[in-house]
Every structure is written in structure tokens, then in C-alpha cells.
């Protein structure tokens, strides 16, 4: 029995949108239901590995309604079944529950999403930037941030030959 039918049976009555693209099931759930859905998927549908967490900024996408999306790729190690769960977020309220209590691998991946998109994770044990310096002000993978940055890369003192 596929994960899709299983989830609909276990958590009935919740609003969720299923899409299918190239044999891949994706489900969009409301941010409030995320923890419950993921727990059900892990405990009762044996989706035991969180393969990837990432974000998407839909700012320039034609016909997109929401600004941000957080994507969770799940995998059932035994059967090899994959499922992608995602949550849509909009500007003032960029917060979603942390999955670190369910999956260990979520720790760094969520920090990276925060680093790149500025989405915060409620209940994360170490909510700091992962890749960029702590003092970096912007969130570089947002679509309104230029590829070449705003000059942060050259904001350093120069050491000349004579003084070194």
C-alpha cells in the first residue's frame, strides 16, 4: 500500500494537496500540520530517513501564490519508496516546526535553510547560521539577492607587501 493512501487513511480530514510529477508524489501540508504528518509518516508509514531539507523562493516564478516553500524529502530505506512533503510560507510569518526531534539529519539541513532563506525553525537546538559568517546580513538564495552580492566579498582590510 502506497504512502499516499496510507496517509489519507491515518490522518483523515486534514487539508493537503497531492501532486504528481514524473512518478514522484509530492504533498503540500499546512505549516500547523507538519509535525503530526511527519510523525505519522515516520512511525506508521516507516519513512525512516529524511534525505534532504531545502527551501525554494517562489518570488519570480510565474503564477506562484506563496513566497517560500520548505521541502522535506523522505525515504523508506527498506522499500525504497520516496515522498516529498512541503510547506508553504509567506512573508511575515516565516516559521515552521523543527524536525530535529524526529530525524537527526534535520539539524544541519534546517540550519542551512535558515542560512540561505531566513526561515526560522521553532524548537531547533542550535539556530545559527551554518555556512555564512555570523555577521552576514542577507539571505543569499532569496531571489531578490543579486548573484554577485552587495559587496560583502570585498569588505576586508588590504595587506600590502611592506606591512606584512
Amino acid at each position: 500500500m502506497s504512502c499516499k493512501d496510507n496517509l489519507d487513511k491515518l490522518l483523515p480530514g486534514k487539508s493537503r494537496t497531492w501532486t504528481k510529477f514524473k512518478d514522484q508524489d509530492r504533498v503540500i501540508v499546512p505549516a500547523a500540520d507538519l509535525t503530526e504528518t511527519m510523525r505519522t509518516l515516520r512511525d506508521q508509514c516507516s519513512m525512516d530517513m529524511l534525505v534532504d531539507v531545502t527551501g525554494v523562493d517562489w518570488l519570480d516564478y510565474e503564477g506562484a501564490k506563496d513566497r517560500f516553500e520548505v521541502v522535506y524529502c523522505l525515504l523508506n530505506v527498506e522499500s525504497g519508496e520516496r515522498l516529498v512533503v512541503s510547506v508553504m510560507l509567506n512573508e511575515p510569518d516565516l516559521e515552521v516546526d523543527s524536525m530535529t526531534s524526529l530525524y537527526k539529519s534535520a539539524d544541519w539541513l534546517e540550519r542551512e535553510v535558515y542560512d540561505m532563506f531566513g526561515i526560522t525553525f521553532k524548537g531547533h537546538p542550535n539556530p545559527k547560521r551554518l555556512l555564512l559568517p555570523e555577521l552576514f546580513a542577507a539571505f543569499p538564495l532569496r531571489k531578490d539577492y543579486p548573484v554577485q552580492g552587495r559587496g560583502e566579498r570585498h569588505n576586508f582590510p588590504v595587506i600590502t607587501r611592506a606591512e606584512s
Binding site: P140, V147, Q148, E152, R153, H154, F156, V158, I159, R161
Partner: peptide
């Protein structure tokens, strides 16, 4: 790598 984080040539900052 003409991107936001890569220094465009170390000779800007050290000899």
C-alpha cells in the same frame, strides 16, 4: 565563481 561569497582574486588583499 563570480558569486556573492568568493573573493575575486586574492591579490586584492595579500601580495
Amino acid at each position: 565563481f563570480d558569486t556573492y561569497s568568493v573573493v575575486q582574486g586574492i591579490d586584492r588583499f595579500i601580495p
